[in-house]
């Protein structure tokens, strides 16, 4: 009898509750208004020849997509983002993990070290990019000349071959802070007894790292990879503030191409077409990453 009434109540609470629907409404409404509507608008405009301001326009089907894909600038942008993303994911993961392991070992001044290593994360990307912009022009070449390193003797941002690495370096300078903190927390969640037991069993340093540390870090690694994949595919602020896509088109990322097409080059409808393609690419790659990292997590568990 009593049990029944509980169940009844539970059901009432669960199913009939308008409150539970009401709780979701503010977010759902905002999200629909400011996310879904613009997304659909964007798709619609990508099928027109609208220039962004005129009163009339025609539906032109998928011809904007054809124009975009045929343009070498677009392929160039895709290639830039692909390289940037892969390098960013690998480097951020490796560098932050190494720093985290080192920081995890320190006892002397460890708080000081950790707080300084985190500082870049709290700064705005624009400020960081602007400072590095000056450093690349006025400071680093001087150091390069002093050390006699030729590729460092001129601004890395000015060379189409090295500009991507210069941007990447700045991104790493700032972007490793949060992953490092996450990795430290992950490392601290590994029970020390496991290491001790493994050492007694004669496991080497690498074996311990591979078989004990990594499995415990899998959730963090997944999170880092997923966030960096998206960051790499949508990189914008650093490029806007440092090279604006140059020299030539060497650092023209897709995000910047969308911006330039729509705001500077009167190619509004093509810019939304690029944006739609970017959406599909990011969606697909994110799904694949989620799938892969999800599988790994199961293995790890």
């Amino acid at each position: 009898m009593f049990q029944q009434s509980i169940n009844k109540r539970k059901r009432k609470v669960r199913k009939g509750s308008r409150v539970m629907v009401g709780f979701t409404l503010p977010v759902v409404i905002l999200y629909s208004l400011f996310f879904l509507v613009p997304l659909l608008m964007g798709f619609y405009y990508s099928l027109t020849n609208w220039n962004g301001i005129s009163k009339t326009y025609k539906i032109v089907g998928f011809s904007n997509y054809v124009k975009v894909i045929m343009n070498p600038r677009f392929l160039n942008a895709i290639w830039f983002n692909a390289r940037y993303m892969v390098l960013l994911v690998i480097l951020v993961t490796v560098v932050s993990l190494v720093i985290a392991m080192a920081l995890n070992r320190t006892k002397l001044c460890s708080t000081l070290f950790r707080s300084i290593y985190f500082v870049p994360a709290i700064l705005s990307l624009v400020t960081v990019a602007l400072i590095w912009n000056e450093l690349f022009y006025r400071v680093i070449p001087v150091i390069g000349q002093q050390l006699g390193i030729e590729w460092l003797s001129t601004s890395l941002l000015g060379n189409p071959k090295t500009a991507i690495y210069a941007i990447l370096a700045v991104n790493l300078w700032q972007g490793c802070s949060i992953p490092t903190v996450l990795f430290i927390a992950g490392l601290q969640s590994v029970p020390m007894e496991l290491y001790e037991a493994a050492t007694v069993d004669g496991a080497g340093r690498w074996a311990r790292f591979k078989n004990i540390t990594v499995p415990f870090l899998i959730p963090v690694i997944n999170m880092v990879i997923i966030t960096q994949v998206k960051a790499g595919l949508t990189v914008f602020d650093y490029i806007k503030a440092m090279t604006d896509g140059g020299p030539g088109h060497a650092t023209e990322a897709i995000g910047l191409l969308v911006y330039k097409y729509s705001m500077q080059e009167n190619k509004y409808s093509q810019s939304v077409a690029v944006a739609m393609i970017l959406f599909v690419i990011v969606g697909m790659i994110s799904l694949i990453t989620l799938r892969i990292t999800g599988d790994k997590q199961v293995e790890g568990d």
Partner: peptide
């Protein structure tokens, strides 16, 4: 024509390189 000046600038920058 619209868009030419922007495109031209990038081509000229390539020439400079």
């Amino acid at each position: 024509p619209a868009g030419f000046e922007q495109a031209k600038r990038s081509e000229l920058q390539t020439l400079v390189m």
